[in-house]
């Protein structure tokens, strides 16, 4: 171990882990409870949107929520910031 290692603190990454898990777990739970077509629907909707706007795959969130016997499909797209010309 070099002398420098004594001064180097390892990165506090626990919060990053927590945030990443929170998102992926929520997404996977939605897919789990929901109908089988959800992943395909998500992919196809993304393709359509990308014909017009250049968005990242992770800028798209899909949620299926059940409330009082009603199902609500929520589809959120974070648009990229508009570049100033």
């Amino acid at each position: 171990m070099g002398l420098l290692a004594l001064f180097r603190r390892s990165q506090p990454t626990a919060n990053v882990a927590k945030e990443r898990l929170r998102i992926i777990v929520a997404q996977e739970r939605t897919a789990r409870g929901g109908p089988d077509y959800m992943p395909t629907l998500r992919r196809e909707l993304l393709e359509v949107i990308r014909k017009y706007i250049n968005v990242d795959p992770d800028a798209v969130q899909m949620n299926l929520e059940r409330e009082d016997g009603q199902e609500v499909l929520e589809f959120t797209v974070a648009l990229p910031e508009r570049k100033k010309v």
Binding site: R9, S10, A14, A17, K18
Partner: peptide, 17 residues
Amino acid sequence: RVAAGEMMSVADVKDIL
């Protein structure tokens, strides 16, 4: 490691799951 912010805490994992 939890105190140093390098590892998720009991509360974090409990919260997620």
